[in-house]
Simulated scan of single mutants.
Amino acid sequence: MSDFWGELGKAIGKTQLTLDAARKEAERLASEAGRGVNEVLGQVQQVVTGEAPAEPVNVAALPEHQRVAYAGALYAMANADGALDKDELLLIVDLLDLEGLSPASRQVVLGYVLAPPTLTDTLAAFRAADTTLCYALLLNLVEVAWANDLLDPLQDQLLLQAQQALGVGDEQYRAIWRFIREMRSIRLRGQNDHVAAQATKTAAAGLAAVGVPIAIVYVSGSVIGLSAAGITSGLAALGLGLGMVPGIGVAVLLGTGVFLGVRALLDAANQDLVRGQLRQRAQVVLTYLNEMLVLIDTQIAALNQSGRSSVQLHERRRALAQIIARRQSMAESLH
């Protein structure tokens, strides 16, 4: 299944991107950054041509303690402003994949919806982590901080703390911010898929110009935030397939817009296979979301019995219920 989506992404990408255009953009960015043009061109050319595909960042393949810490870091950043709102929860749900976790670790991650950990504790798991993973985590943390279009001063401080703890340089940190800003701008302006593809390529080239691996685009919630077809065209424009894109939210989106957009390229047997796979994964995320809802309901009931209440918990429950309704509707479209 992974190979299928990877080859499909490359095929689409070859029809939407010319190496010459990528070369010119890379030259400009490399010049601005004061880096060697050949170094930047090498990375962009490899990605665009597919000769040496970027190794995707796959959070689900990390050691279990890092998977738990990664999830905890996202919840910690979201909760830094004192609340977990709908936009933050939705992004975290899109970014996380709990499949393969042990029951104990799964419960820990689910419990973060009630009591997120501190960011410092979670970052400790990445002190000796691969550089690409550190870039990916920082990218996701910035995205979560901006999920509700407001950056709380405490979140800003925590991002600087994360930058230092993860060993990310100032130039690279600024490039990550620029990438997120450009991708959010595309989504807010409602650009068509061709424009989204070209802008994704340009934004990713800006990462490469300062040494940030393009592979971190695979975990970008900003890419998830594009239209379903925009995800396909945007990743394909970089020569990146869809097979290893993490986040169950992406899988659900693939079952609606993207699937409808590319099914003409598939024979009937493959259409049924893909739809079945996506239907199964959609059910997985709904199970995960409903487990979170049960935890919140249990906590609310316990507080009620003791004569107490929590406005924050009720708001969190309302947001989660809305997310479940949206995911349920998307899942039903796969039938």
Rank of each mutant, 00 (worst) to 15 (best):
F4G: 06
W5D: 05
G6T: 12
G13Q: 01
K14G: 10
T15G: 14
L17W: 13
T18R: 08
L19S: 06
R23Q: 12
R28V: 11
S31P: 06
G34F: 00
L41T: 07
G42M: 07
V44A: 12
V48W: 00
T49P: 04
A52C: 10
P53M: 03
V57R: 00
N58M: 15
A60D: 13
A60W: 10
L62P: 12
V68G: 02
A69R: 02
Y70V: 03
Y70M: 06
Y75S: 00
A76F: 05
N79S: 13
G82W: 05
D85R: 11
L91A: 00
D94M: 07
D94K: 09
L96D: 02
L96G: 02
L101K: 04
S105I: 02
R106E: 15
Q107D: 14
G111L: 04
L114R: 03
A115E: 15
P117F: 05
L119T: 02
L119K: 06
D121W: 05
T122G: 08
L123S: 08
L123R: 09
A124D: 14
A125D: 05
A125F: 04
D130A: 08
T131F: 10
T131S: 15
T131A: 14
T132I: 04
Y135D: 10
Y135S: 08
Y135L: 10
A136K: 07
L137P: 02
N140D: 06
N140R: 11
V144D: 04
V144N: 05
A147K: 02
L150G: 09
L151M: 08
D152I: 06
D156G: 14
Q164N: 13
Q164G: 11
G169S: 07
Q172W: 06
Y173L: 11
Y173W: 14
R174G: 08
A175E: 02
W177A: 03
R178Y: 13
F179I: 01
I180K: 01
E182M: 03
M183L: 09
M183C: 07
M183Q: 08
S185H: 04
R187P: 07
R189V: 01
H194M: 14
A196Q: 09
A196I: 07
A197P: 05
T200D: 03
A204C: 12
A205S: 15
G206S: 05
V210I: 11
G211V: 08
V212F: 03
V212T: 06
I216R: 03
V219F: 00
S222T: 01
I224Q: 13
G225L: 00
L226M: 10
S227P: 00
A229K: 08
A237M: 01
L238K: 02
G239P: 03
G239R: 02
I248L: 15
V250C: 01
G255C: 04
G255W: 01
G257N: 02
G261W: 01
V262E: 05
V262A: 06
V262N: 03
V262P: 03
A268D: 12
A269R: 15
N270I: 14
G276E: 08
Q277V: 13
R279V: 05
R281Y: 09
V284G: 08
V284M: 13
V284P: 04
Y288D: 14
N290C: 10
E291T: 13
V294W: 14
D297W: 09
T298C: 14
L303T: 00
Q305E: 15
S306Y: 09
S309G: 09
V311T: 15
H314L: 15
R317F: 06
L320A: 08
A321P: 11
R326D: 10
R327H: 14
Q328F: 02
Q328E: 11
A331F: 11
E332I: 11
S333I: 12
